[in-house]
């Protein structure tokens, strides 16, 4: 075969392979670039900044300080409290939101009267502005004239300092966040429930399984993927609680409601310390990573899936 023909065929083959291989990466390239710029670059910048010092006036980097920013925040009681509170928010949010969302999803899946309205109401809370929701809950929690204390007074219980008590305030923020965010895991569970084949329920009924046994042995195992997603989403949501803290308590009283997100915000925007704020953000990211890895491991299926 003449060399020219061989070369031409080779070239055509390469072009064909390229035509086969290129469209895929080309199509995902915009998403990769966007993710790189808006997700991963800030992350890298935060990590880098956590080892730098900054000019407090114009926030330009002035040098490398090793672990000094980490030393600074670890020795700050405010950070320690914010760290503990972050974990507390995650635990409370997961403990309250996941069972509640599952309960609501199962209820709505029954298509009982009023289901459409209930679904709309729950999703509306999810869609509502966080700031507006916080302002509404601020009125509900008002020590005098707020609805919650009015209810307590009506049943003869003492007035509660919901947002100003050392012990109540974190729970009050968490309660608002549960109300606001329960819609997301509920929708995830609802989608998971609707994907479970009805035949399995019919088979369970034929085998004489009651509602609880059906739920435990059919519904729950088949909802495992949804559960993992819901846990992951709610962990991130709980770690990032910010607006209610800013609006309802500004981290008080005595730092009782501050978390790592709010602590980092204050360091950067109120105390002109971007290096320490970045170190705090890195700690927050580590918390999310460790917890989600643990969740994934704990919620893995029998085959490790």
């Amino acid at each position: 075969m003449p060399t020219a023909i061989r070369t031409s065929r080779k070239r055509n083959g390469r072009m064909a392979r390229l035509a086969e291989v290129l469209p895929g990466p080309a199509m995902i390239l915009p998403a990769v670039v966007a993710l790189g710029i808006f997700q991963f670059l800030p992350l890298v910048v935060a990590v880098v900044n956590s080892f730098r010092s900054f000019n407090p006036f114009n926030q330009s980097p002035t040098g490398w300080v090793g672990l000094a920013n980490y030393d600074e925040i670890f020795s700050d009681p405010g950070f320690q409290l914010a760290f503990v509170n972050t974990i507390a928010y995650i635990v409370i949010m997961l403990a309250a939101t996941i069972p509640l969302a599952l309960f609501l999803a199962v209820l709505l899946d029954q298509r009982l009267p009023g289901s459409t309205f209930a679904r709309g109401a729950i999703v509306a809370a999810l869609a509502a502005s966080e700031a507006v929701s916080a302002l509404i809950w601020n009125q509900l929690y008002d020590p005098r004239g707020g609805m919650f204390n009015a209810i307590l007074a009506a049943v003869g219980l003492p007035e509660q300092p919901f947002l100003i008590g050392d012990t109540q305030s974190l729970l009050s923020i968490a309660a608002m966040s549960v109300w606001k965010d329960v819609g997301l895991p509920m929708l995830i569970f609802l989608a998971g429930l609707q994907a479970i084949p009805r035949e399995l329920y019919e088979a369970a009924a034929l085998d004489g399984a009651g509602p609880w046994r059906t739920f435990r042995n059919v519904t729950l195992p088949l909802l495992r993927p949804s559960l993992v997603v819901a846990l992951f989403m709610m962990t991130i949501t709980a770690t990032r609680i910010f607006t209610p803290i800013l609006i309802l308590t500004q981290g008080g009283p005595n730092g009782a409601t501050s978390n790592l997100a709010y602590y980092s915000y204050r360091l950067n925007f109120e105390f002109m310390a971007p290096g320490a704020a970045s170190a705090s953000v890195v700690c927050m990211l580590l918390v999310i990573v460790v917890i989600t890895i643990a969740q994934t491991w704990l919620a893995r299926g029998p085959k490790g899936v």
Binding site: P161, G252, P253, M272
Partner: peptide
């Protein structure tokens, strides 16, 4: 020169004292 820091640090303390 750090009045912004001072101001932001003292406000929550005042609230805590009030409470």
């Amino acid at each position: 020169v750090g009045w912004f820091d001072y101001f932001n640090a003292i406000n929550p303390v005042v609230r805590d004292i009030a409470l």
